[in-house]
Amino acid sequence: MTPLLSLSNIRAGYGASLVLHDLSIEVGEGEVVCLLGANGAGKTTTTCVIAGLVRPWSGEIRFAGESIAEVPGHRRVSLGIALSPEGRQVFPEMTVHENLLLGSYAPHARRDRTRAMDQVLALFPRLEERLRQKAGLMSGGEQQMLAIGRAIMSRPRLLMLDEPSLGLAPRIVMDVYAAVAETARAGISILLVEQNTEAALAVADRGYVLANGTIAASGSAAELRGSALVRSAFLGIQAESAP
């Protein structure tokens, strides 16, 4: 069966520096896949390439069987690709409510807005409490929930989450991941990009390890969890990339 998302031999970077040398990953329909890596490995570059914020220098991207390399970023939402970006990137001067409304800006999502709003608020009751509050004034955890909720508002087939646990207290991380799991159960495919390997592997079906701009290892969550090889490779990579 064709995977929902497939990247083949992606080369991408910023300005003159190459970040991704040769990236190939896949996400299947209904899967939760995690992309692990240390700081600077290229995780955010990957999500930006998929979301259309960064143009790859070469390689293929296919979504639901079609190449989307020429589809501009703002049109990828209509295809069903949503991203909760690194650093949340909420609209700071707008309320929670307005942020969520913007999540369903795309026409296909607008039609389903009321139902989507109900679902998101049921998923994140904290957001319902803070509905009229300015997003910029909320805590990190609340903003993270908002970013995810906003992405869900766009009725995605593929939901990408870039470092959702970054800077959050463990208790909040649990709440966030519980919501991620519930979203997965509803049938949305998920690409989870994380430094926090434990949390990610707890909820994922499969995973990749990104190192030096390419995939260093991959396998089922169980395999990756238990693999001393992966652990040392990851830790080793971490040691290398440490200042």
Binding site: A51, G52, L53, P72, G73, H74, R75, V77, S78, A82, L83, P85, Q89, V90, F91, P92, E93, M94, E98, L101, L102, G103, Y105, A106, A109, R150, A151, S154
Partner: peptide, 20 residues
């Protein structure tokens, strides 16, 4: 709202499907 979004966060606006 889309105009305000672009003013507040250009990249996030693209993620919403807004053509900047």
């Amino acid at each position: 709202r889309a105009v305000r979004a672009v003013a507040q966060n250009h990249d996030a606006a693209i993620l919403m499907g807004i053509n900047p």
